[in-house]
Amino acid sequence: MLQKVLQALEETQGPVSLDELSRQLELDVGVLEGMIDFWVRKGKLKDSRLAACAGGCGNCNPGAQGCTFDRGRPRSITLT
């Protein structure tokens, strides 16, 4: 089941939404998210939500919750 997630990602063309992927794999979105988290920990997938902490903000007012301009960016997950 876990491998299927990586495989599906390798085979997709273009961007795919989490919902689309969950329908394609016939998995609940929640379950899929859990599996994605597992692969992120294993270093096979990259989650932009976690990578964002590494980004800088220049003088664009880095607030308590990170760069204020960066917060609007949607979360994305990629193969590494």
Partner: peptide
């Protein structure tokens, strides 16, 4: 409503 993930 999210049974499968919770059952893990």
């Amino acid at each position: 409503a999210n049974l499968e993930r919770n059952l893990y």
